[in-house]
Each structure stands twice: as structure tokens, then as C-alpha cells.
Simulated scan of single mutants.
Amino acid sequence: MAKIGIDVRCLTEGRRTGVEEYTINLLREILRFDVQNEYLLFLNSWKDSRTDLAWLKEFPKVQIKRFKIPNKILNFCFWYLNWPKIDRLLGGVDVFFMPNLTFYALSRKVKLIVAWHDLSFERYPEMFSLKRRLWHYLVQPKKICRRAEKIIAVSQSTKNDLTGLYEINSEKIAVLYSGIADKFKIIDRNDKKLIAVKEKYHLPYRFILYLGTIEPRKNIISLISAYNQLRIWARKENNEDLHKYRLVIAGQNGWMMDRILKEIENSPFCEDILKINFIEEEDKEYFYNLASLFVYPSFFEGFGFPPLEAMRCGVPVIVSHSSSLPEVVEDGGILIDPNRPSEIAVAMREVLTSPILRADLIKKGLKQAQKFNWRKSAKNFITYLNM
């Protein structure tokens, strides 16, 4: 039996972006699957954690080690002093798993496994704030790669970036795909909660959905431009059906979102663009089910949870032909050039006006999304851990 430490500091804020989604779901299935090893979770937050971890009580071989050290002080100590050693704070571990990039300090004897989601900060530094770029500089991602005994890449695209940009030996990198939660599925149209969610968020009857962080990298401005073009076509063609579709942009606010908000305000169809800042986690699958179309024109993704979640819910998707998205979506969606809003608009019109294309995309999307589940991800993780 081995003692395995897992860094869960990313869960302290209570957010559910890609990294948090990955950590929670993978951890839950690892603990269900692995009954031999002992797990020690490293959690540090000066303030009370906003994440409910009560569900961990059902697993007898897991302990949460909570610390209340101010994060800035702890990170400075990790960075400048290489102290304190996390493994010693945990009482000793054989392996330490970091599900995301962050500051740390470990004893030399401890094996380090790191999960890499993407290298967007290297590919598109201009899409990150100065503060975020400084953080990446100080955390020294390339040095973490070299220290790690094993690296998990969530896609082949991410592995290619690690070997190409950081010149990391490909033999110590394994591509272990993330999963999609079972709750994402087609919901009966008569489900009472479906109606309740529609009313709760004041959703229109027909709408095109974007769900994700509101930031430049997600290319929302191109989506708005494409929607404007779609509505102009609908007006010129006197297409009443196409004219009824609204655009819903939902997700947590990121940085540099003022320009995105300005783009919405300047749209001639701004009254038909709905911006929703926050969706309750338990409402997400209903959101997807209510949408007519899901569009995700992101410039860069390490994996891409939202398109697969939408596909599992029986919603046709349009995604960028860039980074990991063609790899995970394959023929389950329409691939577009994220730099060409007109191409996005054409794809949107085709899906919304062709029942045959729509049905084909839904069928292929459901089949493709079934390939990704957290049980498989957890089993692959344990196998990789024991290699």
C-alpha cells in the first residue's frame, strides 16, 4: 500500500471551471476504484474553503489535511525557500499528484505526477493579464515538467505542446483523457425542472448557447459577430424561423471582459443577446438540453469540457478547428476557423435550417461523447500510477 498525496488547493474558491471539474470528478472515481492505497489531500486556505468536501467521508482511506496559511506567504516560501515540504506537512507520502500547475515544494525522494491541461499561456500570452503572465513566469512550468517523474496530458494536443515547446521526453508523458459526468444526458422535455430552469434564468424559447469563462481566449467577440451576420441574413431572406433565435452567453466573468460587453452593447441585436453571469452547477445539464445549438469558437483548449457536455445532452455543436477540439469532438460536431466569424455564421445557419444535418450531428455527437467517462479516466490513472 502506498501513501499518495493529492493537491486540492484549486478547490478552495468553490468555482467549477475546467481544472476544478477535472480534480473533483477524477478524485471521486479514483477513490471509488482504488481500495488499496491511502490518500492524503493537501488543502490550504486562509479563509474557509467554499467547496463542500463532505462527500469524501464515504471513503475510509482518505484524509483531508487542512492548513490555514495565507496563500501569498505560502507561495513565496515555496518559490524562494523551497519550504515547507508538502509531503512532510502531510506526514509523509510516496507519491504527490498535482492536478494543476501551482507553487509547491517536495522532498527529493517523493515521486511527482503532474496533470497538464494546456499551454495556452505559452501559445497566446497576449490573452492573459500581466498579473497572470507574471504568475506563470514565477511558477516555472518548464522546471515542474523536468522535476516530475510522470506527466499526464489531457489530450494529444497538450502532449505535443509539452514535447514541442518544452522539449520534454515524450516517454514520460501519458495522454489520459478526462471524462464527462454521467449527469449530462438527454432530459425528457416534460421534466418539471427543465421548465423551472428556463423560468429561473428567463431563457428564450429558441437560443444559441455559449457556456464557459468570459475571456478573450474563448473568442466570444467572433461569436457575437457571427450572430449579427446570422440575424442580418434572416432579415434579408425574410426567414421568420431563423429570426427567432436568441444568443445566450453564460459563464463566469474572466479578465478583459469589458470589450466583450461593449461588443454586446454595440450589436444591432443586443436586446436578443442574453448575458448570464453564473449558472448553478445542478442546472448546467438543463441549460444544455434547452439550447437549440451550442457554439464554442475558442482559440485554444487543452481538452474542452463544454462541447462534450453539450453533445452528451443531444445538442448539435460547432467548435473551433484548433488545439484539442478536433481531437475530442471528431465528427461529432462542425469544425470552423475561429478567425472567420462568417464561417461560424454559415455553420450556425446550416444547423438551424437543416433538420437532416441537425439529426446527424446529434447522433454522431452522442456516440463520440460516450467515449469519455470518469471511471475510465480513474482506472487509467491508477494503472499509470503503478507502472
Rank of each mutant, 00 (worst) to 15 (best):
I279V: 09
I279W: 00
E280N: 07
E281N: 07
E281R: 01
E281W: 08
E282M: 01
E282Q: 08
D283I: 07
D283S: 09
E285G: 03
Y286C: 05
F287I: 15
F287H: 04
F287K: 06
Y288K: 01
Y288R: 01
N289Q: 08
L290R: 12
L290E: 03
L290H: 15
A291E: 02
A291T: 00
S292T: 01
L293S: 04
L293Q: 03
V295S: 02
V295G: 01
Y296A: 05
Y296M: 04
S298R: 04
S298Q: 06
F299I: 02
E301A: 03
E301I: 00
E301W: 06
G302E: 03
F303M: 02
F303S: 03
P306T: 07
P307K: 05
P307T: 05
P307E: 07
P307I: 14
L308M: 13
E309H: 02
E309Y: 05
A310R: 08
A310I: 07
A310P: 11
A310V: 14
M311F: 14
M311Y: 10
R312N: 15
R312K: 14
R312V: 04
C313P: 13
G314L: 09
G314C: 08
V315E: 06
V317Y: 07
V319K: 09
V319A: 08
S320R: 02
S320Q: 07
H321Y: 14
H321K: 14
S322Y: 08
S323M: 13
S323R: 03
S323G: 03
S323C: 11
L325V: 07
E327F: 02
V328F: 11
V328N: 08
V328Y: 08
V328K: 05
V328L: 11
V328G: 13
V329P: 09
V329F: 13
D331W: 11
D331R: 11
G332S: 10
G333F: 13
I334E: 10
L335Y: 12
I336Q: 14
D337F: 13
P338M: 06
P338V: 12
P338L: 06
N339Y: 12
R340E: 08
R340Q: 14
R340D: 14
P341E: 11
S342I: 00
E343C: 09
E343V: 15
E343K: 12
I344E: 12
A345K: 01
A345R: 02
A345G: 03
A347Q: 09
A347G: 02
A347S: 15
M348H: 10
R349S: 02
R349E: 04
